[in-house]
Each structure stands twice: as structure tokens, then as C-alpha cells.
Amino acid sequence: MSSTHTITDQDLTHLRRCVDLAREALDDGDEPFGSVLVDSRGTVRFEDRNRISGGDSTRHPEFAIARWAAENLTPEERASATAYTSGEHCALCSAAHALVGLGPIVYASSTEQLTTWRTEWGVDPGPLTPLPIHAVAPGVPTRGPAAELTEEIRALQARSSGVA
């Protein structure tokens, strides 16, 4: 159930926070990914950034959101919440998102973009097949990417990959 709905000004506000968190992650030695969970009233309920440098490769912010939501929100609250993220969820995070019953995902950059960039730079694609969200969680509505943030995210990913 992929979507091509336009990114709204409210979406951009939350996506910009995700990019800030991604930059914070990169500055701390992690991969540049950040995410926030926003409830149906527009309140940020949880935010996190990538934290894999400690050796646990599952410490993605999107996975942390799913775990936090499962522990702290009712099924109804989860279904009406929106996850914002600097980069489209990987297969691990897409599955976690769907399994806990979270609502829409809005992403600043797509899996396709990241895959293209990494290929251009000659960077190893990693241990997971780069799949779009709808290939793993077809029932989750999505919006993205946000063209307004593409160059900034590309620059963070380039720095992370050692090409900038």
C-alpha cells in the first residue's frame, strides 16, 4: 500500500528533526539515521537515532520506536501514530513496525535512493537485501521521499560511507 501523497509542512518539520538526529548519530560514530513517533494529536511521543556502533546491529531508531510503542501505547494509539524517519525503513524495521501495528511511515529518503548512492560510491550494500517498506509490510501506508531533504541526507550518507 505504498503512497505518493505529497509531503506536508508538518511532515517536513518532523523529517527535519529526523535529519538532525541522523546528524547526531553520525557525529557520534553511528550510521546517519534518526526517527520520531508522532501521535494522532501531533505530539512527539518518542525519538531516537541509530546506535549500532556499540555492536548491536539491531539498534536502529525505527526498531526502537516499534519496541517503545509496543510497551507504551495501546493498539489504537499505535495504529493512529505516524513514524517519521530520515531513511526508509529496512526489512527488519518494516517488519517490526507492521508487527506492532503502527500507522503510516513518512520518510525523507528512500531505499532506492540509498541503494543508488551506495552503488555509485562502491559501498558494500550490507547484510540485508534493500527492500522498500511495501515489499515487507504491504499494509503500511507510506509517504516519501521528501525532495527538500535529499541533498542533505545524501551528504550525510556520503560522509558515513567515507566518500565526502
Rank of each mutant, 00 (worst) to 15 (best):
M1A: 11
M1E: 01
M1R: 06
M1W: 05
S2K: 00
S2H: 04
S2D: 04
S3Y: 00
H5N: 10
D9S: 13
Q10C: 10
D11E: 01
D11C: 03
T13S: 11
T13G: 10
L15I: 12
R16L: 04
R17T: 15
V19E: 01
V19M: 02
V19I: 10
V19W: 04
D20L: 03
L21A: 11
G29M: 09
E31N: 14
E31H: 15
V36N: 05
V36E: 06
L37F: 15
L37Y: 15
D39L: 10
S40P: 04
R41L: 12
G42C: 15
R45Q: 15
E47C: 11
N50I: 03
N50D: 13
R51E: 14
I52Y: 04
G54A: 10
D56R: 09
H60G: 07
H60Q: 11
F63R: 14
F63P: 02
I65R: 04
W68L: 15
A69Y: 05
A69G: 08
E71L: 13
N72I: 12
T74A: 11
E77T: 01
E77R: 01
R78I: 03
A79M: 02
T82I: 10
T82G: 00
T85E: 03
T85P: 02
S86L: 11
S86V: 14
L92Q: 11
L92E: 08
C93R: 00
S94T: 05
A95K: 14
A98H: 00
L99M: 08
V100R: 03
V100K: 04
G101C: 01
G101P: 06
G103R: 03
G103Y: 02
P104V: 03
Y107N: 02
Y107A: 08
S109N: 06
T115E: 12
W117H: 00
R118Y: 04
T119A: 09
E120I: 01
W121K: 03
V123C: 00
P125C: 00
G126Y: 08
L131Q: 08
P132Y: 06
I133M: 06
I133C: 02
I133R: 05
H134M: 02
A135V: 11
A135W: 14
P138W: 07
V140A: 03
T142S: 13
P145L: 07
A146G: 02
L149I: 09
E151G: 09
Q157I: 14
Q157Y: 08
A158Q: 15
R159L: 14
V163Y: 02
